[in-house]
Amino acid sequence: MARPLALLAFLLTLALPGAAADWKRIRIGVEGAYPPFSELAPDGTLHGFDIDIARALCTELKAECQLVQSPFDGMIPGLQAKKFDAIVASMSITDERRKAVDFTVRYYNSPSRFVARKGANLGVTPAGLKGKKIGVQRATIHDRYVTDLYKGSQVVRYTKQDEVFLDLASGRIDTTLVDSVAASFGFLKVPAGKDFEFTGPAFEDPKYFGWGSGIAVRKADTDLRAKLDGAIAAIRANGTYKRIQDKYFDFDIYGKAPAP
């Protein structure tokens, strides 16, 4: 008789929501395929600017950090399914995403640009790219932007930005719209990208490109968002942010807030 009762009690503890989260342990969704922000080393460990920032924020909050790898197009569904509590994956703060999740203040901001083969002379307007193949990472701001505005082009969507670069190098697609820092470090500075260059201006329309990259949390977790906001301000002030930035970049990655 005692055993079914114990089992029932155990199942009930599983079903009940956990005690009010004190955020001593924060599970953070990261991508691991987006150098230099987030990448997997050959030995299986996660590295990059996003990863270091996530760890620094946990240290600041005296919380245990648990990094959970997830593909980018599964980030917001994963957050809502409570696979993790926050997303640190270079995710741009956009109004569209704000309908589903809440964001902290930004932790960096870099513009987006088209990348194409040197001397390809592509116009990067919708008219100039008519009939061309534009590769983008699925569910990103770049995906939304070209899907909405480049109706005459063929938009080819990939799960990872790495795969976009592979197909750009092999000539399967003509160009990609991508974060300029990710393009520079992940492609243009490596041997595979030596024949490619940025083309056209930097894109910053907040309607699509948002207000920099922030940390996404569930709408209900306002306390976690406030804590992370505070932690971002703290590492900006105490030099930790600068130390992490200097490890990866020789410029100011925090950037300016785009005009609203």
Partner: peptide
């Protein structure tokens, strides 16, 4: 399905 998931966040 992946497209729908990425737009609607309804896996």
């Amino acid at each position: 399905a992946r497209e729908m998931n990425s737009v609607t966040y309804l896996p």
